[in-house]
């Protein structure tokens, strides 16, 4: 059976296959052996193996029938706690299949739930504790409320080491019969920023472009996924051309179907690469953060982004003086 995406195809299937995060894997193996597990909280940056660990864990725990005892929900898709409650209720209403006396419910991106929703989630966790164990994943454990943290065993996933990522990428390339140069490999690791999923996606897309993966190919791929227009927009703003910068913004939003928050995030990412004074970068980030907060509060996105660009025109012109 051939998986469409390499991220899935080469996702480790058992705990034994996971080469990183040794401490975590060791603890999970104990749970499998004892056929008991507490509620768990997996915290760490994207692409560090949180989902992989839980999937391998349930496979080891339940064997072939893992799918019948496993429910995966994503908090950023089911923002309504009611939906989560109903789904959990349905899933929990039937007995676990096989000899393990509980089922596993994974709630991804739990830090996207409001604290009210988390309070409700905590009650749900208690209500179904007899038959279900919860595994929550998040990027920042500090965004999970205290009462939930105290009910969970917390696992912290560290960013993958460059060496480990390189090994894995080379291994996948070998399996797929793809040639990759040394600078091509370095480029992938640089662009992936410690995110294994990102690295594999870049590898797969790069391999589609030609025989050998060089750094040129990698940068071409990465450039498409992270629109160049953001940088162009910023350059226009910094050179004082507000109207043109705003036109670019509209274009960007329409072409990529981005939300205002997406744009803010991309701007944030670009700031560090700008050839400007370090102190100024901090200033800019302060403004960007303020805008993102306002958007969350529900302020009008077109007006907020225009205001940000207008601010940049002034800062940019002062910078050149």
């Amino acid at each position: 059976m051939s998986e469409v995406m390499w991220t899935e195809k080469y996702r480790p299937k058992t705990l034994d296959e996971i080469v990183n995060q040794e401490e975590i894997v060791k603890r999970l193996k104990v749970f499998v052996k004892e056929r008991n597990v507490p509620h768990m909280l997996f915290a760490g940056p994207p692409g560090t193996g949180k989902t992989t660990a839980i999937l391998a864990f349930v496979r080891d725990l339940y064997g072939e029938n893992w799918r019948r005892n496993y429910l995966e929900l994503n908090a950023s898709d089911e923002r309504k706690i009611e939906v989560i409650r109903t789904t959990v209720k349905q899933f929990a209403s039937t007995l676990p299949f096989g000899d393990v006396p509980f089922k596993i419910i994974v709630l991804d991106e739990a830090d996207n739930l409001t604290s009210d929703a988390q309070q409700a989630l905590r009650r749900i966790m208690e209500q179904y504790a007899d038959t279900c164990r919860f595994c929550l994943t998040c990027n920042y454990s500090s965004k999970i409320i205290e009462p939930i943290q105290s009910r969970c065993a917390i696992f912290r996933f560290a960013p993958l080491k460059d060496e480990d990522m390189k090994k894995r990428i080379l291994w996948i390339a070998e399996q797929e019969g793809v040639e990759i140069t040394e600078d091509g490999l370095d480029a992938i690791i640089y662009a992936a920023e410690g995110d294994m999923r990102h690295a594999i996606n870049i590898l797969q897309a790069s391999s589609a472009l030609g025989e050998t993966i060089t750094s040129d190919v990698v940068f071409k791929v990465v450039g498409r996924a992270r629109p160049e227009e953001v940088r162009e927009m910023l350059q226009l703003a910094f050179s004082g051309r507000f109207m043109d910068a705003r036109e670019k913004l509209y274009e960007l939003l329409i072409k990529y179907g981005l939300s205002a928050t997406d744009v803010v995030k991309q701007i944030h990412r670009e700031i560090f690469k700008l050839p400007i004074d370090e102190r100024l970068k901090v200033e800019l980030i302060d403004h960007i953060g303020e805008v993102e907060y306002r958007l969350v509060e529900g302020a009008d996105s077109e007006i907020q982004l225009s205001a940000l660009l207008a601010k940049f025109t002034v800062i940019g012109v002062n910078q050149r003086k």
Partner: peptide, 20 residues
Amino acid sequence: YAHLSARDSVSEILPYLTIV
């Protein structure tokens, strides 16, 4: 197929999928 939210799938998967 990806164990990701729909939103993240758009930004993290779709660009690469399209290239392939």
